[in-house]
């Protein structure tokens, strides 16, 4: 192997690793706060990319109707609960969040000619369509099961993944889409050729990771999410609602998933079902971090990216096998080094 190939594979590995790192962080967050192993994470990647592609093609992405429909269902359920408790004051806020936000985004898409907008605005619009799906799905699928065992939550998670993937086929069809690069061209750096899009991916991922770090470390809301992950009862006794924490973590996860999709869609063609495999690789990273440690999960995800890239060169047909086999030694090492703790109810 010469230096040029090494650099090329390294660049590829780091680029994919950065995406996996974002997904791994979201998975750790969701699991820590809600104990849900977030299998549908990949669907948000696909939804983000395909929604952006639809907007750029001048079409109304069907995902917005999913958001409007889920919002309406959540509104009906929560309004009924509020009315039974005679909590009229909850209604305006509830309506604004569940009906107002999706309808406002839908109106924006109809009112604006999205295809002619600048790329950053198109991206914002795509994120505004997909990210609200996170808390809405949490409300419908997971909030009623908040105290269920991890296994039940996992089963619901798989069901949610299947449903969203099926809907993805309905919404976007079976063909794949690719979106234009954020900026075309490449940078010659000695023997290395760096694609601008790769730089974008790594750069934006780093910015997002730093933003997450500041959110968790500096803001009261971020600390409240960590507190819920650490000690649910303690957090509730401080008035931190488990439900709110769950919705917020799903929002962050959906946002990160959709953003990852937007970032990778210029370098790979994405189909309605492409997200699953991407999400699973983030999951391998999250497992390396024991679903607890954010930095180890992020580093593990980068390792997955590099391993994938190099194995695609040496043993391309075994690429996925090699990547997912990584989980076995990691689990073995984890089970030998960590004390088994019975799940607390």
């Amino acid at each position: 192997m010469d230096l040029q190939i090494l650099l090329l594979l390294g660049q590829d590995g780091l680029t994919n690793g950065a995406i996996y790192a974002l997904l791994a962080l979201a998975l750790v967050l969701v699991f820590a706060v809600t104990r849900v192993i977030f299998i549908p994470q990949g669907e948000f990647v696909a939804y983000g990319a395909l929604t952006l592609a639809a907007l750029q093609a001048g079409k109304v992405p069907a995902t917005i109707w999913l958001a409007v429909a889920l919002g309406a269902v959540v509104f009906v359920i929560d309004a009924a609960i509020a009315l039974r408790a005679r909590a009229w004051r909850r209604l305006p806020g509830l309506a604004a969040l569940t009906l107002g936000v999706p309808l406002a985004v839908a109106a924006l898409i109809h009112g604006l000619d999205a295809a002619t907008l600048a790329l950053p605005l198109q991206i914002l619009l795509a994120l505004a369509v997909v990210a609200p799906l996170g808390p809405l799905i949490y409300r419908l699928a997971f909030q009623p099961l908040a105290s269920a065992p991890v296994l039940v939550l996992l089963i619901v998670s798989v069901a949610t993944h299947m449903t969203l993937m099926g809907l993805g086929l309905v919404f976007f069809g079976a063909e794949g889409f690719r979106t234009p690069a954020f900026s075309d061209g490449s940078l010659e750096l000695g023997p290395a050729t760096l694609q601008y899009q790769s730089l974008w991916i790594v750069g934006v991922s780093l910015v997002l990771i730093v933003a997450l770090y500041l959110f968790f470390g500096r803001t009261l809301t971020g600390k409240a999410l960590r507190a819920t992950a650490m000690n649910r009862t303690g957090a509730r006794l401080m008035g931190i609602s488990t439900t709110l924490a769950g919705k917020l973590s799903f929002f962050v996860a959906a946002l990160m998933g959709a953003f990852s999709g937007v970032l990778v869609s210029p370098v790979t063609t994405l189909y309605y079902d492409s997200g699953f495999l991407i999400g699973l690789k983030g999951f391998v990273g999250a497992i390396i971090g024991g679903l607890i440690s954010y930095p180890v999960a992020a580093l593990g995800a980068v390792l997955v990216g590099l391993l994938e890239s190099f194995s695609s060169f040496y043993a391309s047909s075994f690429k996925e096998v090699i990547v997912f086999t990584l989980i076995i030694p990691v689990l073995l090492w984890r089970s030998l080094t960590t004390r088994h703790v019975e799940e607390e109810e």
Partner: peptide, 25 residues
């Protein structure tokens, strides 16, 4: 506000972060 028998602190957070979260409401 209840101070439970088990204290239910946020063990991996600093003393000050624990206190600040007390004012979450």
């Amino acid at each position: 506000i209840l101070v439970p028998e088990k204290r239910e602190l946020f063990a991996e957070m600093s003393v000050e972060d624990n206190l600040r979260l007390g004012a979450f409401s």
